[in-house]
């Protein structure tokens, strides 16, 4: 028993992450670790670097010209910026949901099966099963099951966003990154997304950027507060919202700036 090593609690570790847009330093050395099966919320005023940092975690910033990143980000101890890393594989393990629901202009089924087909899965039964499971996990199955072959674009914004969550979950990533996934949604749809995330955290690690502090407080395990490219405070959500260590954190949470 003793020699069987449980996987480390930490899934992502980041150390001294600096990011430059050209010469401008946007992140000033961020060190943060993320535990498996936890929901971490990144909060902070616009331009504080939370989305930029989030996008470092699956190398989305690679696509932006002039960006340089220093420091280390490790997924299960492996440096994700190492030259040998296959970025497509990385993004399969670290999936992302964006602010605006962005389903592909084809059917719900094809949207969710997209990543699986890309990975070479052709077996109809396997696809059917994974599509159904993913849509169920994303809590949108009941609403789309009778219209799986209808275009995903014909559904409401909240449903589209949950279809996008299902699309990410279909490839069974380890980590799901969400960049303000509910800011374009009404409160009911937002609540449904929040419930979805809560329900999937047994299987996934969730990191979410949100402008909505109530959202962070309601369902995240940990909260990180970023300001001007610095990590000001990172702690359990209950601690952050009840007695944060820094005055700046309290001021931001109370809407005194930002």
């Amino acid at each position: 028993m003793a020699d069987v090593k449980a996987p480390s609690k930490k899934i992502i570790t980041s150390e001294n992450v600096y990011l430059y847009y050209g010469k401008k330093e946007a992140l000033h050395g961020i060190s943060m670790d993320f535990n498996r099966n936890e929901i971490t919320a990144l909060i902070g005023p616009s331009g504080c670097g939370k989305s930029t940092y989030l996008r470092c975690l699956n190398r989305m910033n690679d696509l932006i010209p002039g960006v340089t990143i220093n420091g280390s980000i490790r997924l299960d101890k492996e440096d994700i910026y190492a030259p040998k890393v296959d970025v497509v594989k990385l993004r399969k393990r670290v999936g992302m949901v964006f602010q605006q629901p962005n389903p592909f202009p084809f059917s719900v089924y094809d949207n969710v099966a997209y990543g699986l087909r890309l990975a070479g899965i052709k077996n109809k039964q396997v696809l059917d099963q994974r599509v159904e499971t993913s849509l169920k996990q994303a809590a949108v199955w009941d609403e789309v099951k009778d219209n799986l072959y209808k275009s995903a674009l014909e559904f409401s914004g909240g449903q589209q966003q949950r279809i996008c969550v299902a699309r990410v979950l279909a490839v069974e990533p380890d980590v799901v990154l969400l960049d303000e996934p509910t800011s374009a949604l009404d409160p009911i749809s937002s609540a449904q997304i929040e419930e979805t995330l809560l329900a999937i955290k047994d299987k996934y690690t969730v990191i979410i950027v949100t402008h909505n502090m109530q959202q962070a407080s309601r369902f995240s395990d940990k909260t990180a507060f970023l300001l001007n490219g610095n990590l000001v405070e990172f702690a359990k959500t209950s601690k952050m919202f009840m007695h944060p260590d820094k005055q700046e954190t309290s001021d931001y949470l109370n809407g005194k700036f930002g």
Binding site: Q214, S217, R218, T237, S238, F241, M242
Partner: peptide, 8 residues
């Protein structure tokens, strides 16, 4: 208190 602070 926790409920008030976190669930508003």
């Amino acid at each position: 208190l926790k409920l008030i602070a976190l669930q508003q």
